[in-house]
Simulated assay, not measured.
Amino acid sequence: MSANNQMDVTVILNIAVEAGKDILSVYETDFSVENKQDDSPLTLADRKSHIKIVEGLEQHYPNIPILSEEGKHQSYSERKEWDYAWVVDPLDGTKEFVKRNGEFTVNIALIKDGTPILGVIYAPVLDVAYVGEQGQGAYKVENVLEKVNKQIPLEDIGIALPIKEERDYCSVVASRSHLSKETEEYIETLKEKHGKVELTSAGSSLKLCLVAEGKADVYPRFAPTMEWDTAAGQAVVECAGGKVVTTDTNEPLKYNKENLLNPWFIVAFKSFNY
């Protein structure tokens, strides 16, 4: 099956937007918060978004399996037979959602043989999307709700990434909720290499998007993440010309592994000395 040849990225973007609407319907209420077994937060918004995304993907692409944070995870013996799969985080940045700071996203990625080949990230509060498709480049789309249903080609409604920015310092983006000691130590090494370093904190997959956009030079992640946290962002970064590589092998992150936990990684453009 040549899945990506049949993909319409605007369909995926539309699914993400509809999921975002369901998230906002909860965001604007006095919602309750549960804790999952790993102590990470879970809300009605996570569940509603998961249902909307699964319904949309199964309607348009019924033959492609779905690996979602909030779904049932098939055994590796079954998953390892998959050529293509969706990797989905229905609400990435639930901690940011609970804090009501707007820095949360809907993440939908298509992987082929463990490599992300399409990624859609939608930030409902910001009404901004980042989209990457192998061979088609990466784009930032603002005011998405005005544009998503008009059947306009992505290159006509989006801004091609990266957007070049001139600066005389190294811009580092790091997790707002998960800044580890190892990350702080790494930032110190960047100061030795690059001199002035400015740190920006952000939630969810927006950190990868800031590198893809060119607003940040590097995103080091020396703390736990899962595959659904990064798959869509990696697609956007790589389609913009950047890379998402592990700290131990310097190889790209892979997906649909037996263990769905990511190793530590660094996100940057190829020319950056990290």
Rank of each mutant, 00 (worst) to 15 (best):
E155G: 01
S171A: 10
T230P: 00
Y169P: 01
E155I: 03
P224Y: 08
M1D: 14
R176P: 00
L57E: 06
L126T: 01
A174M: 04
P124C: 05
F104G: 05
S271N: 15
K243C: 07
E18V: 05
E166D: 11
P162S: 03
A3N: 12
V11K: 15
G20Q: 08
K164F: 13
S25F: 08
E227K: 02
F97H: 06
N101L: 09
I64V: 15
N14E: 15
N35L: 15
V128A: 02
L126H: 14
D30P: 06
D113G: 08
G137C: 04
A212D: 00
A223Q: 05
K36L: 08
M1N: 13
A160M: 05
E227S: 00
D22A: 14
V244T: 10
D92E: 02
R167I: 01
A235T: 01
Y186L: 12
V131D: 04
H50I: 04
D39I: 03
T183R: 01
E58A: 07
I111F: 09
I187P: 05
I23V: 14
L126R: 15
N273H: 14
S49V: 09
E28F: 14
P153D: 05
C170P: 03
L13S: 12
T115P: 04
T249Q: 08
E213R: 10
Q151H: 10
V98A: 10
P90D: 03
E103R: 10
L13W: 11
D156Y: 07
L161A: 05
K215M: 02
V120N: 06
K147H: 06
Y130S: 00
S25V: 03
R47F: 12
A45V: 07
E81W: 14
M7D: 10
L145C: 05
A129V: 02
G158K: 02
D229A: 01
I163E: 05
D92L: 06
V245F: 00
Q136R: 12
K254P: 01
E192H: 07
S2R: 14
V218A: 03
A85R: 13
Y255K: 03
Q136A: 09
E18M: 09
K99W: 12
C170T: 03
A174E: 02
E182G: 08
D30H: 11
N4V: 14
S77W: 08
E227T: 01
W264C: 06
Q6V: 07
E238I: 02
D248Y: 11
V128G: 02
S25W: 12
I157G: 02
L118P: 09
R100M: 10
D89N: 06
E103Y: 11
E155L: 04
V106W: 13
V11N: 15
M226P: 00
E146H: 06
D46G: 13
D217H: 15
K207G: 01
S171N: 07
E34G: 09
T247V: 11
D217Q: 07
F272Y: 13
Y219M: 02
L67S: 11
E258D: 13
L260D: 07
P153M: 00
C209E: 00
E142V: 10
K147G: 04
W264F: 14
L208T: 01
K112S: 08
H194N: 09
D38K: 12
V211P: 02
T249G: 00
